[in-house]
Structure formats: structure tokens, C-alpha cells
């Protein structure tokens, strides 16, 4: 199921890998525009709670989501290694704050598996695939659509703590 989502012509997929709370997650490089250093965000009134605020990137106003909170892993730690990944899906551009940008990984389609059934049956799956690695823990490939969905569903800042 997942491999049908991650179709690749040459049997190779490029993943940009990031670190969140010591865990490595991957995002398809074609969804990434660039990676920049971490910056202060300007809060946005009445925005969904998962949206931290906006930043000014070369004249363009871009909303920023803390990926750690969006994945319910806790806030990102900040510090000198923290980065913001600028991603684009369906002509929608936004930023994801991560603890560190690790590498660009080229993986063969054969090493990609679907997410565990137990995780997907709960109705919400931020992970769309898992990549097995030889000498390291598996890399979780994120579904940006689902993350966007959870952002839309999260209450505004005045409401409860988001999931």
C-alpha cells in the first residue's frame, strides 16, 4: 500500500532526514524547497494551535509548524543545530521546525514498508512508510498531507492543548 504511494521510476527514493527528539524522520526531497537556520517566529492570532507563527523568507511570509508538537513528541529543543525545513505540497508552502537536519538518504524501493497496521487503524497516520536501515533504527517517512490535516483540526491557541 505504501509503496504505491511512494512510486519511483528508477526504484530509488531520495529522502531528506531530520532529527526530532532523537528520532530520525524522512521527507521526500521533492516536497522540500530548502532548509534554513532556525529563526524566531512572529505569533499569528487565531491561527490553529500547531502553527507557531510566521517567518519572513526573502519577502515571502511562511507559516511555521513545530514538527515535534505536530507528531506529539514534545517541543523541538532549538539550539544551534535546529533548522526549519521549507516544504511545499499542493502549492502550499510552510515551514517545519526540526532539531537537526541530518542527511539526504537514497533508499531502494525494496527497503520500504507500510506503516504498522496497529498505527493506521487508529484513524490518523502521520507515517506513511517505514524505511529499514542496515545498521540504524528505521526511518519514518512522514505524510505531510496528514500533518496538514492535523494542523487544520487543531484548535486555535486559546483552546485546549493540541494532541
Amino acid at each position: 500500500m505504501a509503496s504505491s504511494v511512494l512510486t519511483a521510476n528508477e526504484g530509488q527514493i531520495e529522502l531528506a532526514c531530520f532529527e526530532i527528539e532523537g528520532q530520525v524522520v524522512g521527507i521526500d526531497v521533492f516536497q522540500i524547497r530548502e532548509i534554513i537556520r532556525n529563526q524566531e517566529t512572529t505569533p499569528l492570532p487565531n491561527a490553529p494551535a500547531l502553527i507557531e507563527g510566521v517567518i519572513d523568507l526573502r519577502g515571502q511570509v511562511i507559516p511555521v509548524i513545530d514538527l515535534g508538537r505536530a507528531l506529539a513528541q514534545g517541543c523541538s529543543k532549538g539550539g544551534t543545530s535546529a533548522r526549519i525545513a521549507i516544504v511545499e505540497i499542493e502549492e502550499l508552502i510552510f515551514g517545519l521546525r526540526v532539531d537537526a537536519a541530518v542527511d539526504v538518504l537514497s533508499v531502494a524501493s525494496g527497503t520500504i514498508e507500510g506503516p504498522p497496521a496497529l498505527a493506521t487503524h487508529s484513524g490518523y497516520a502521520a507515517i506513511r512508510a517505514v524505511v529499514r536501515c542496515k545498521d540504524a533504527p528505521p526511518v519514518m517517512v512522514l505524510s505531510l498531507d496528514q500533518i496538514l490535516e492535523s494542523v487544520y483540526r487543531s484548535n486555535s491557541r486559546a483552546g485546549e492543548e493540541p494532541r
Binding site: E14, A16, V29, I32, E34, I35, A101, D103, V104, S106
Partner: peptide
């Protein structure tokens, strides 16, 4: 890292 993403 950005160059690597562009290359990918």
C-alpha cells in the same frame, strides 16, 4: 545539505 537536496 541544501545542495544535496537540489541534487536529489
Amino acid at each position: 545539505l541544501n545542495a544535496a537536496i537540489i541534487a536529489a
